[in-house]
């Protein structure tokens, strides 16, 4: 079993080469482009995400990590319900569960039989439709098992979201790939604000509910699109 590897875990989980199927996700960029977003507006989309969906997801990961180590038996149910309630658009819940499934497979590989990983079954909402554990919940559980500090976990979750946009831009609004790196680097101070807020969250009912109505609207439209590169 791979447990307690500390700081290396942040690099592993944030690496775009992590084989967990995240390449199907543009973190809202493809739906935004379909709605007319231009290349020049990508930094604005990143700023919007870092203040909204990223805060909610990072906070959920932190709460999952705390649940993973704090209690016996571990129950991710309340957190999963709180996060699902703050993801009001069905296609975004579905993609969150699909992405969570990839990380879940990795968690079962790295820490088979670990009680905090086995307990991910408590995050399954029976539905219908059944909702598998959302990615922040799974990432938080795995991060805790690997011994990742809370702030690093939160930063990893935010960073992954921003990089998903930046790298999808190379396919959707192609330009100099170095621009993508610069865009992400420029978000540094807002990323730290999101991290602070995520770590300050104390219980599922306090999970920040940051609505981003356009992101949600575009996601709904995208789900009905036929020719697309990304799930969402």
């Amino acid at each position: 079993m791979t447990a307690g590897i500390g700081p290396l875990a942040a690099l592993l989980l944030a690496d775009g080469r992590l084989p967990v199927g995240a390449y199907v996700y543009s973190a809202g960029l493809e739906p935004a482009v379909a709605a007319g977003l231009t290349r020049e507006e990508i930094p604005a989309l990143l700023r919007a995400r870092v203040r909204t969906v990223c805060v909610t997801e990072a906070a959920a990961a932190v709460l999952a990590a705390r649940e993973a180590v704090a209690r016996d038996p571990v129950d991710y149910g309340p957190l999963q319900r709180a996060l699902a309630a703050r993801t009001p658009v069905a296609p975004l819940r579905e993609v969150g569960a699909a992405l969570g499934r990839g990380v879940h497979r990795l968690a079962l590989r790295l820490a088979p039989g670990h009680p905090a990983i086995a307990a991910l079954d408590t995050a399954v909402l029976p539905g219908p439709p059944v909702l598998r554990p959302l990615r922040p919940v799974v990432t938080g559980a795995l991060g805790a098992v690997l011994g990742l500090a809370e702030a690093e976990l939160a930063r990893t979750v935010v960073y992954d979201d921003l990089q998903a946009v930046a790298s999808a831009a190379l396919k959707l609004l192609p330009g100099d790939p170095l621009d993508s790196v610069a865009w992400v680097a420029q978000t540094a101070s807002s990323v730290e604000e999101a991290v602070v807020e995520a770590v300050a969250t104390s219980k599922p009912s306090d999970l920040p509910a940051r609505s981003a109505p356009l992101i949600e609207q575009w996601a709904l439209e995208h789900a009905r699109t036929e020719r697309r590169l990304f799930l969402a």
Binding site: V20, S26, K171
Partner: peptide, 20 residues
């Protein structure tokens, strides 16, 4: 399955979506 424009990755380097 939708392969996010990475059809080669989806059968080799990262088969997650196909396994799902």
């Amino acid at each position: 399955v939708e392969t996010g424009a990475c059809p080669h990755t989806a059968i080799r380097d990262d088969v997650s979506v196909n396994l799902d």
